[in-house]
Design a protein around this nucleic acid. Sequence first.
DNA 1: AAAATTATATGATTTAAATCATATAATGCC
DNA 2: GGCATTATATGATTTAAATCATATAATTTT
Lengths: 237, 237
Amino acid sequence: MKNNGPIETGCMHCNVRLNSVFNVLDEDQVKDLCIHKSCAVYKKGQYVFTENGLPAGLFCINSGKIKLTTTGYDGKEQILRLVKSGDIVGYRALLSNERYHCSAVTLEDASICIIDKKYFFDAIESSPKLMFEVVKKMSQDLKVAEDHIVSLSQKNVRERMAEALLFLKATYGFEEDNQTINVSLSREEIADYVGTSTESCIRLLSEFNNDKLISLKGKKISIVNLQKLIQTANIED
Amino acid sequence: MKNNGPIETGCMHCNVRLNSVFNVLDEDQVKDLCIHKSCAVYKKGQYVFTENGLPAGLFCINSGKIKLTTTGYDGKEQILRLVKSGDIVGYRALLSNERYHCSAVTLEDASICIIDKKYFFDAIESSPKLMFEVVKKMSQDLKVAEDHIVSLSQKNVRERMAEALLFLKATYGFEEDNQTINVSLSREEIADYVGTSTESCIRLLSEFNNDKLISLKGKKISIVNLQKLIQTANIED
DNA sequence: AAAATTATATGATTTAAATCATATAATGCC
DNA sequence: GGCATTATATGATTTAAATCATATAATTTT
């Protein structure tokens, strides 16, 4: 027998509502939001949007992990941000009415909503709360970017590598074993975030492994000695 | 005889109104703005605000140049942004309700307004246009920061140095001679922006000078061969 | 104006990290 | 399953850039 009741997969129960900037909206506003969004499933490695493209709306990550990358000099990739479920993506170009200056690529299979551009603008104009949430998000990303600038400017590769592992842990957390970082990146991708060569990245991970700071199993990295890793990253506070 | 007419030094005629995010406000709104701002004069080298401080309002640069710096590891200074007249400063911490994560220091004598925090929030809530202007500003700063990340990750010091000179030119423009960059930074400050040692910075400027890309007179740097400097910076497009 | 401090300049040396090279392991593919 | 491709690993060499050192020029301070 067919059930004609409320669709359980709607916005009411999705990550976008619970963990994202949209948590400030009330039930009616969320319902309204659902009308103007469309959901899509992406396979690992697919592009959500690409550099120089025009934003059609705001992307909300329902599930899956995404990297924001830009093509630097000689085609070398730079990972600018790492995004997880509940996050919004592509807001910068959208808000400033520009083309994307980076691409978004899924790191694993993902479910992603796109909220229509026009509707998103209406929503933030009519809800200062939502606007402030988006502003806070951008403000946070700006802070992270500027912290990254300081690292790249002042730290050596070993320190940045340790810092990157701590950053991955902070972003994606641990798996059930409480020590394995819950994301799979290639050595090259890690290098593209850290700002080093793939070989140096591999070498340093091996060293950290030998020094029992981390343990390696394929692409999975476990933090074995957090305290020593923090020391290696040379973080203040 | 005393003149009781309109005060000519008010907001109507200041840079903040003309070149800044506030250009979207109408005459009445600007008048209102004036009531809630106070202006102050800063000597070269003075702090406008400092790292970890709490924002009391939004700073608007009437005249003068400002650097935003953060203290990195081992106390090494990092220049994060360079600001000119007409710009707003300190909006990030203010909007996200955080402490400053960088300090603002005047690079020359400056005249700076501060707009009361509460009033600024009221203003952006009541004027979506103003809010969008501020958002665009932050978006721009985020883009610049991420471009800087790519440079620091992928370019060598020589390329970054050339790029920095082009950035200084883009930010502050030329003097009347149409080739001297209109800002005076110490070699150390340039190094703190480029992410290199003071010695390397001095050496590279000397080299550029010998190679007739630039010419040096004290802290004043003139771009003699723009085309070659762009090549040295290795900029695409 | 002289002394002291700080900024700029340049040479010599060291070092971190990139590059080059090659081997092995893992993954995708017909 | 076996072949091809890509990813990881590690050694050897080179190179860019930091560091150390010292000198001179330019500011500040007294």
